[in-house]
């Protein structure tokens, strides 16, 4: 049972993390290749606090605020640079995060932080807590997408210049997307730190940023259900294919490539096409 609890907790954290990127990249169309940096910011902030014996639940808002603050700064950068330039800038932020953390002794440097205290709850209730947070954010995402803000996001993703011509302050909405998305990533980071109880600079590197972006794209950019599904599957896939050990990464990257090559609109796109096919048949 302990194994299933770990799996489900990992899944829930990944779903929360992937949905937070979906908010920025999916809804608002701002591609980020450094989202793991915010997971890391939240994780480090929360772990440092609980290590100085501050209750776990209190550290969640702090993690969210710190990550959200850095997200605000990146949001400002996204007002300067766009498209491919933004992708590379956010990638740079990811490398910068890892590079800085590596050199800070008080953050554990290369070795990372070990012995992070367990959250003040049983493993079962921690799992339920993670699932509840993921569900709340999924509902929030669905709500936002149907709200005025969601329409503006969609319009920015579609064509930012036209949005501005319509008299909408696109900058404010882009900043909002970045702040909300990164703050939630910070919360996911706090959960991550207290789930694995060890964090290091390499837990939040470029590979993690790419895998979370892969979850969003494989799920179907902007689709809440698709992204949640892809995050759930992809997060435990490495554990499920443990038996091909040496070829694990090859399998994962091969799958990702095949997905991009043959079904670039993701799981959501496949489902939609199937649905259309069934409807036409009947």
């Amino acid at each position: 049972m302990a194994y299933e609890i770990t799996l489900l907790t990992t899944m829930a954290i990944s779903i929360l993390f992937a949905l937070s990127l979906n908010f920025i990249s999916g809804f608002c169309g701002q591609i980020s290749l450094g989202h793991a940096a915010f997971l890391g910011t939240g994780a480090y902030a929360s772990a440092m606090l609980t290590k100085s014996s501050i209750p776990f639940l209190l550290t969640l808002p702090v993690a969210a605020i710190i990550a959200g603050f850095f997200g605000f700064l990146i949001g400002l950068a996204s007002l300067r640079v766009r498209h491919d330039f933004l992708a590379i800038t956010t990638m740079g932020v990811g490398f910068l995060f890892v590079g800085i953390v590596r050199k800070q002794d008080f953050l554990g440097g290369e070795l990372g932080l070990a012995g992070i205290p367990s959250p003040d709850m049983s493993r079962e209730s921690f799992m339920v807590f993670c699932i509840i947070l993921a569900v709340i954010f999924a509902i929030f995402s669905l709500y936002i997408r149907r709200s005025w803000m969601g329409f503006v996001f969609e319009s920015i993703a579609d064509n930012e210049d036209v949005t501005r011509i319509l008299g909408i302050d696109a900058s404010r909405f882009k900043l909002a997307a970045f702040v909300i998305g990164t703050a939630v990533a910070g919360i996911a980071g706090a959960l991550y730190a207290h789930h694995f109880r060890y964090i290091g600079p390499d837990s939040f590197g470029f590979v993690q940023s790419v895998s979370v972006l892969a979850m969003v794209i494989v799920g179907g950019v902007g689709s809440v259900w698709g992204v949640a599904f892809a995050a759930a599957v992809l997060s435990i896939l490495p554990l499920l294919v443990q038996f091909i050990d040496d070829y694990k990464l090859l399998f994962y990257s091969g799958l990702l490539f095949a997905m991009m090559r043959f079904a670039p609109d993701g799981v959501a796109g496949i489902v939609q096409r199937l649905y259309g096919y069934v409807r036409r048949k009947s």
């Binding site: 992708a87 790419v210 794209i217 990464l249 090859l250 091969g254 990702l256 490539f257 991009m260």
Partner: peptide, 28 residues
Amino acid sequence: EPLLHRPPYIALIASIALFIASEEIFRI
């Protein structure tokens, strides 16, 4: 070539996947 008419991030992710896969192939 088959991805040219798709949004640019599709080709980017495909390219990253290709890169990771080839690192694995070199190792194997």
